[in-house]
Amino acid sequence: MVLSEKEKINELCKILLEVGALLMETGANTFRIRVTVMRIASAFGYHAELLITHRALMLTINNEESDLFFSRLMQTSAHRVNFKIVSGLSRMSWHIIEEKWDLEMVRHEIDRLKSVPHYPRIVTLLMVALAGASFCRIFGGEAIEMLIAFVATFVGLFVRQEVTKREFNPYLCIFLAAFVSAMISGAAVNLHISSNPEYAFATSVLYLIPGIPLINSLLDLLDGNIINGVVRGLNGLIIAFSIALGLLGAILIYNI
């Protein structure tokens, strides 16, 4: 399929925006998005200018020889961390430079990356629950507290996945997950099952901590992308607040 210059620039613009939006949704920082998009654009002989925000991306690409330029805006959809896509897109940008991929191959690769499956659900649940138990152990819990943290994390994450699937407000999902986890580990505190049940109570909601928004926020701020940094930081704070509200619910019910 031979594309005219105009069609080519149109298709390239679409692809670049899709790459940028995917990176934004899956948890890359602003610097990484800019570098990746610029790299792909320059591999095709165009110069790209980007405006990156949390909910939309704006891109202008131009060819300095023919002075043809193209602008487009694209909204990002719901944010969902997925480092397989970030890693795959970064790899793809190097393949494009080193192996001179054409647009069709790039389009295929993006579609393939989007359909790469997650880890099986049970593996995710078990490993994250194990991480919760590990946290409990690091803070000083014993075997029984680790078991409580394990169960609370497992059920909480399950609830979060189920609620997210039904497309509730993301902060509400986190609130519900934190509430369920805190109710399970709080029951242990209330029934005096072990000597130090507070360890389990404190660590049972740690799987929800907004690590990526907060770290990305500070990375953006250090890079000079102040607005994106502030937006991500606020997002992280609201998530932390939702977790606290979930805990508050359990604290009030059990009167801990």
């Binding site: 961390v81 997925n82 480092f83 397989k84 795959g88 880890y119 991480a131 919760g132 946290f135 799987y207």
Partner: peptide
């Protein structure tokens, strides 16, 4: 335990 905590989150973030 530190290693398992990191790996648990890695799987939650769906790393390769």
């Amino acid at each position: 335990w530190l290693g398992f905590a990191a790996t648990g989150f890695a799987i939650l973030f769906n790393v390769p």
